[in-house]
Design a binder for these strands. Structure first.
Lengths: 213, 213
DNA sequence: TTTTGTTCCGAACATACGTACTCATTTCCT
DNA sequence: AGGAAATGAGTACGTATGTTCGGAACAAAA
């Protein structure tokens, strides 16, 4: 199959986009506007080429009678990642994260997420935030926090840290120096907490936040 | 959702069948022939009912602008929604959202998102937050804000509002009473702003926030 | 019965949309 | 360079297709 010109690629991509957004294919004039093409005849011309090259099929005389053939851009991209929602996170409650082997068996809840949120991180899980206690971390009630299990966080990482004495979990930026850990809220107007390293345990590293209103 | 008449059921089934066979929805006359209906107006009449009852959505004046809702949510469940990232949002910069017809022109960026973030909202787009100015809304630098175009926000909605005199865009909870708009930060420790309704223009409603660290 | 509401019919209308045709502009090849 | 081929632009035409409208057929009330 021949290489497509930029314009043809643009048209093909636009059609795939359009079908995803609406449930029906675009008209010639939709494509014209969407791809900033000056004339419908140019669209028709390139559509014929796309058809000849096997990228799509067209039903003659039928409005929007376009059928994409190779669904490379659509169905192939289904490598979405299933992330378990292991429970809630709130101040005053220890996390109690079960071992990763049991994650998908006693499946509480799952969310499927696009890869760009996970990247190459392994064993990402999610927690539902309860209450306003994470507000310093710019995390609201009901948010979904994506976390990656980690034992040795790097300086600057946002972590879920539990203060051992208070049994309190917070989301803060983590800095360690000379055995003293500084927990810095994401909202810099708030004050940081300094505690000895042995007084906190890091439960994981925050890799994302999802808020759905 | 009400029970469908035999004719309506027949029409609905035919549409699903048709989309299965071709990749595009049927025209009114396709349905007329496929269901042995004597007039296009009867098809239109029943399509309106199907739309009112929530079985499908129609785009006015658009050929084959039919979108099935029921089966769609099941079979399309694996299908992720492509949301265009239309630009940046920052205090001091008006949004300048282009018309939806031009969204998917080759230019911009896109993110694929799972359906639960979009729900049934239409024309959702995303903006990349630049700077710390949205911190009151629990939105950090680099966050992706999902927005839905809206003209009349409801009280309590989080909206992107532009203060006309200051040319400043903020994300705040919107409350209107007696022509006075109160913009309430999500972080309740911050102070609210009260302005006359005519001094602000609402650019859209925030439906989600995505933070990827 | 009359009334009222729903469904259906047939035709006509307005336009959304595919296609064709002519002429420019660019790209390619020798 | 020069001519051919490919690509693009602009316009016009025909029809595919959504929409409207007056009225008939039918059933359920009143």
């Amino acid at each position: 199959m021949k290489k497509l010109s930029p314009r043809q690629q643009s048209i093909f991509d636009f059609i795939a986009q359009f079908i995803q957004n609406h449930q029906y294919p675009p008209s010639v004039r939709d494509i014209q506007n969407g791809c900033n093409i000056s004339s419908t005849s140019v669209v028709d011309y390139n559509l014929r080429i796309l058809q000849r090259e096997g990228y799509l099929r067209r039903e003659a005389e039928v409005s929007r009678g376009i059928e994409l053939l190779q669904e490379t851009s659509l169905s192939q991209n289904r490598n979405y990642i299933n992330v378990p929602v292991l429970g809630n996170i709130a101040a005053g409650e220890p996390l109690g994260i079960p071992p990763s082997e049991t994650w998908h068996s006693n499946s509480i809840d799952n969310v499927e997420l696009p890869p760009f949120l996970i990247q190459d991180k392994k064993e990402v899980f999610a927690l539902r935030v309860k209450g306003e206690s994470m507000i310093d971390a710019l995390v609201a009630d009901g948010d979904l926090v994506l976390m990656e299990p980690i034992d040795n966080p790097n300086n600057g990482d946002m972590v879920a840290a539990m203060l051992k004495d208070k049994e309190e979990v917070t989301l803060k930026h983590f800095y360690i120096q000379d055995g003293t850990v500084t927990l810095q809220p994401a909202n810099s107007r708030m004050e940081a907490i300094k505690v000895p390293a042995e007084n906190i345990s890091v439960q994981g590293r925050v890799v994302g936040v999802i808020r759905s209103i």
